[in-house]
Amino acid sequence: MYGKGRIIPALILFLGLMTTPIWYKSGDVSKMPKPEKPKDYTECVAPVQYMRTSHMVLLNEWRDDILREGGTRVGKTANGTEYVRSLQNGCMKCHSDKKKFCDTCHIYASVKPYCWDCHLQPKEAM
């Protein structure tokens, strides 16, 4: 290969830099997030597995249904408990501590949802 002496070390250096985040955090896997669940309730509006992966989809569906189609604002869980289909006035009524619930996973997954630019977390000090 032409210019081998320079290309190969450069490639190695490039790969090394690119993978920094992986080996920088290696051995850190034990720190899985443990969001604090509300103590007084046993079920959520949908199965836990679905909520874990798709709560943002559900929130978007609620929003579009209520805002555009004039959909109902009250939903029922599988066991018949009524809840408000709203992030601020529904979800946060049970999951009342944003830091211990929402933020633990979001920080871990490094996502920054913009919910709280407008919606208020319970007793938010502004």
Binding site: Q88, N89, Y114, D117, C118, L120, P122, K123, E124, M126
Partner: peptide, 14 residues
């Protein structure tokens, strides 16, 4: 603050 008293039941805007 621009919003004097915040209503906790309704969102603000961004």
């Amino acid at each position: 603050p621009f919003i004097k008293e915040i209503n906790q039941k309704y969102p603000t805007r961004m």
